[in-house]
């Protein structure tokens, strides 16, 4: 009896938790729910709220009254250009990544065996381990006017080809590193692993017997690809495209170092918030990728992308 009375607080607490499992559940769930609810959703909500304020055009101070005028500002030609430019770039990068990643993922999933499989995994993952900035600066040197690429083409007497390409409007420029093409190449390179890995995972799940059956039934390889392999791999491609698309949409470092200095959404947010103190417009800009990704995810879900995750 005496022993029972002098039970420590710890023992009583553990007894209580055992008798009331609901309390235990609440205690365990509280920290992550608070984290999600306050830190994550809370800050998102604060951001959304900011976008409904406006900046006083005379004093530059923020006007804390509900208005949609900041959103209207997104549709001025200069700002709408930024949105269009970013979305077009994200779409192009995603398409190119998918086209390049598919054969690599296919080989890695179906043919690479033993040691080679490890080499493939390493090769794909390696770029993710080195610093993002180092990779971008390396690309700047490769693409520069007096860089390796120009040098190599000169050696091959092919620089007329590069010059002809650079004289094109929109994609061209003074050199690859100051052209939209340069930005595109670096985006595709940097996000490539995020496309390859989901496609590889999807391809590994396609049973070899299905491809054989398709061949046995008289389908040519192209038909097998179009009617069997591609539809089965599509969720993987869509999952990968979510990464490449959203990462391109939000990045603000690559276009600052490589490209024409024309702004992307991420840079616009950074400049309006950091330099101009125009937080409402920065918040409205930040909402754009959220809306676009919302639509994108909704479409991706309908295509079954999340079944492959």
């Amino acid at each position: 009896m005496i022993a029972a009375r002098s039970e420590s607080i710890g023992t009583r607490l553990s007894d209580m938790l055992w008798r009331r499992p609901a309390v235990l559940l609440v205690l365990l769930l509280l920290p992550p729910v608070l984290w999600l609810g306050i830190i994550y959703l809370g800050s998102l909500f604060a951001l959304l709220l900011q976008s409904f304020f406006s900046i006083d055009h005379f004093t530059g101070l923020i006007n804390y009254r509900f208005t949609l005028s900041t959103y209207a500002e997104l549709f001025t030609p200069a700002n709408f250009d930024i949105i269009l430019r970013t979305v077009t770039m994200a779409a192009c990068c995603t398409l190119a990544s998918a086209v390049i990643a598919f054969p690599i993922a296919y080989y890695a999933a179906r043919y690479a065996r033993g040691k080679w499989r490890a080499v493939f995994y390493l090769g794909i993952m390696m770029p993710l381990w080195s610093s993002y900035l180092v990779k971008i600066y390396a690309w700047k040197l490769i693409l520069a006017k007096e860089g390796i690429l120009t040098w190599a083409l000169e050696g091959l007497r092919l620089n007329w080809l590069l010059e002809a390409y650079l004289s094109l409007p929109v994609v061209g420029g003074n050199s690859l590193s100051v052209s939209t093409t340069g930005t595109f190449i670096v985006f595709v390179y940097v996000w490539m692993p995020f496309m390859i890995l989901p496609i590889q995972a999807a391809l590994e799940r396609v049973p070899g017997s299905m491809l054989e059956a398709s061949g046995d039934l008289g389908a040519r390889p192209a038909q097998t690809f179009r009617h069997v392999l591609f539809p089965l791999a599509l969720p993987g491609i869509v999952a990968g495209s979510i990464f490449t698309f959203s990462l391109t949409l939000g990045d603000y470092i690559i276009p600052q170092i490589i490209g024409t200095s024309r702004l992307f959404i991420g840079q616009a947010v950074y400049q309006h918030q950091g330099i101009a103190g125009n937080i409402p417009l920065a918040a409205a800009f930040a909402v754009v990728p959220i809306v676009i990704m919302g639509l994108y995810l909704w479409g991706a879900k309908r295509m079954g992308a999340f079944d492959a995750l």
């Binding site: 900046i55 530059g60 200069a78 024309r262």
Partner: peptide, 28 residues
């Protein structure tokens, strides 16, 4: 740059410098 400047009645404030310079670089 501030709106109520010394040398004239009213000047273009800094936040407009920011948004317009973005437009200029974007080709507007």
């Amino acid at each position: 740059p501030v709106a109520n400047c010394e040398s004239q009645d009213e000047c273009v404030p800094y936040y407009r410098w920011v948004s317009d310079y973005i437009g200029v670089i974007g080709g507007r």
